[in-house]
Amino acid sequence: MSEVTVKNLQADVQSLPVRKVNTRLMKLKRALPLFIMMLPGLIYLLINNYLPMFGLIIAFKDINFAKGILASDWIGFKNFEYLFSTRDAFVITRNTILYNGGFIILNTVLAIAVAIMLNEIKNKLAKGFYQSVILMPFLISMVIVSYLGYAFLSEDTGYLNHTILPLLGLDEVSWYSEAKYWPYILTFINMWKGIGFLCVIYLAAIIGIDQEFYEAATLDGANKWKQIIHITIPSIMPVIIMMTLLAIGRIFYSDFGLFYQVPMNSGAIYDTTNVIDTYVYRGLMQLGDIGMSAAAGLYQSVVGFILVLVSNYLVRRKSKDNALF
């Protein structure tokens, strides 16, 4: 098998004109230090990312450990069935897409708004302060965020039920058993935690805009609002597109900590908190079936990959420069 390929490759090389080969070799030789530089990183990717990809065959097997992974029976797409055959399949797919889609839109809009405002603040001290504080939640792990969430939302002891709602004259709410509140809670927590970093990225892009554009616009009598619409947003479009494309690629993955730890794995709210990742994890815990989780992982990757290719293609058609590749 390998010999054939190598021969093909050699044939490939030999078919080229000799001179071209020489210059190519020269080029390769000159680039040798660069290749050496890349080596540690590429080896790491090979080990950490590419080697495990062979494990994807598990998705198509009925694993029996007495036989070993390679010798286990092939069962085609049977492991994928549970992802599609139940009512849950619809719920988890819907939740995953709606949440992540919502996160992409809301976080992007808010982060850009905050970034623009931060840019408007001329007082250096205040600017530094806002920026540091808004970024703080980003530094905290989801495990701790779930502790925090519980401190606010716990039925008996939480700050909301115990202090804020009575203050407003409202009844207590069983947060962890009422599914209808969770889309808001999770979106809020996601924004609270993620906005800081995203905002820094956009702020960075805004700072990079040439000041002359604004000066010219001011001379023309454009107000702040117009400047934002016509200069700021178009200038940071490439960054917006890149961040969004990357997010779209991961639209089928969800932040496991957010959807598992923060709702305290409470059964009553599965309708609005269950996403593909948590569903698969619970299945794995319940049944210990690695075939099923491998199938889910493959499904997430493939869909993400296709989505990125498609959206990249769409972007590319409008503007080649903005496309990711």
Binding site: P52, M53, F54, G55, L56, A294, G297
Partner: peptide, 9 residues
């Protein structure tokens, strides 16, 4: 960034 082998592999 898009593909991974999953936890067990």
């Amino acid at each position: 960034l898009l593909f991974n082998g999953g936890l067990v592999p």
